[in-house]
Design a protein around this nucleic acid. Sequence first.
DNA 1: GGTAGAGTGAAGCGATACTGCATTGTGATG
DNA 2: CATCACAATGCAGTATCGCTTCACTCTACC
Lengths: 309, 309
Amino acid sequence: MLNVNRLRILAELERQGTLANVAAALRYTPSAVSQQLAQLEREAGVALLDRVGRTVRLTDAAHTLVRHAQTILRALDAAEADLAAEQGPASGTVRIASFHTVLLEIAPLALTLLARDAPDLSVHLTHREVDEAHLELLSHEFDLVLGEEFPGAQVPRVAGAHRSDFRRDPLWLAVPRARDWAPRRLADCAELPWAVEPAWSRLGQWALNTCRAAGFTPRAVVETPDPLLHLELVRTGHAVSFVPGLIGAEYLEGIDVYALPGRPARTLYTEVRSGRERHPALLAVRRAFAQASKQLEPVETAGALRADG
Amino acid sequence: MLNVNRLRILAELERQGTLANVAAALRYTPSAVSQQLAQLEREAGVALLDRVGRTVRLTDAAHTLVRHAQTILRALDAAEADLAAEQGPASGTVRIASFHTVLLEIAPLALTLLARDAPDLSVHLTHREVDEAHLELLSHEFDLVLGEEFPGAQVPRVAGAHRSDFRRDPLWLAVPRARDWAPRRLADCAELPWAVEPAWSRLGQWALNTCRAAGFTPRAVVETPDPLLHLELVRTGHAVSFVPGLIGAEYLEGIDVYALPGRPARTLYTEVRSGRERHPALLAVRRAFAQASKQLEPVETAGALRADG
DNA sequence: GGTAGAGTGAAGCGATACTGCATTGTGATG
DNA sequence: CATCACAATGCAGTATCGCTTCACTCTACC
């Protein structure tokens, strides 16, 4: 019978690329990883690793083996989830990765709900960008990640993760409050300075596409992933910016927000590793975030923009 | 992460019922089994075993754990099958269980074919009744079992085994050859002495049902699972008997066989553990038995009986 | 009440899977 | 070309783990 732990190491190697990274991820020494894979190769009877340069690459046989390993690891996760469900109230520690807005607006409420509903459960929140967090979810760095999906940039579903959407969050335009001017279409802001997200972020990507669809490329006066900085620049009259509807009203002093044509919205979701979706602790966390989200209302808009062109 | 070997022990316990049997099946001492299950219970955090009398019973949690264990073990089997397929020609040893007729008529031919087509493969044939063999397949005593299914006694399909039918084999009535007498319906043999299979065997069960449907209960002069003994008694004029069509013509000297009304036939099949159906060695064995079966023809009947009543 | 069989537990031992360290080989850099 | 950083591997030592042995308890059945 093949050794499951060795299969797990091989599966991790497919993700991590090098033995050294696998060792770091699984808290082994590289030597241990090397020895275990060598043993697995001996037991398998076929070559699993191609030495290419100073690193290794999986053979086809190794890749099919990894597929099997993944169903095994999923079943193990599911078994543990079922066991945890038998144990009664959710307990243990859940490591969560979240991006900025959710961390700012939803997480505090969710933590309050969790403290009430699952007092034995402890939570560890880490600030991560979505794509990075997704990978770290798969390699067991996190137990649950919060994600966002933007219109026109559908996130592919992967077998290793179980996703659950909990909110649609409208995307708005934020401009400095002024008596004598109001945008009527997005293109009216074409010549203004913008506060933008980095282009590699999901929101930044969407923003860029949206502006381009309106016929212009935003001129960035500042680029940062922090939406509060965006708003500070808007308030002080130095920029306009997109803002998620979830942002608290207290950050919108001196700022007017406008709904965009077509009412675009991002989808907020949670992700756990497949097989663990029935784990009571993860169920409790998901429930808490969903409930917390329900208690939050988007602020009023000053109006709606018309479609461009 | 739960230990897969311990899960395997638990799964085996569900089949075997007692720790002692598990130990025998897995070639452990009972003490080892007890210790491993105790450890699993500790890791699981929930009770898995109920001590009832001097034996144990699985809790609900244990049963769900076994379900997960089975998908894991299937995936492991499938992984090994894929690995074996990579290794090129089928090799190793296949442990086969077969019942009498197949062992007598098909197996020799199949072995010949295998020796030609898969010379690196070695085969170990054991004589077993079907139901017994089926259980021993699941507990890894055998890699492949030959089975038979009779009309009116459908064998339930189980998830742990992969079945493949390879022949329908007619069931006949065998009577001593005589100039002055021939049966015209089954009930004509109601008063004659019978050679019967044991009632616990699948063929014996079917025979009993068939006679009862014809309005009589056979009076047994001899009860044995060995069809050659049946025929010897028929030839010497001491009994009539049912006989499978697969029996060689050389055993039918001085015997007339009659087709039964409705042309009942048993289905011959092979069974392997789920997940291993793509194992090259098992594929080769199945192919050999199917081909061997094709080369055998049922002998001519002396006529066909009419329906009773 | 005696006996056979099921399960458990302590002690001991061998296998196994790590760590630590030294070594090889590769690729990037100056 | 020399140097350096780093990936992978091999060897020796060690600690843990999982098994066997053996003694024991408990139950079911004569």
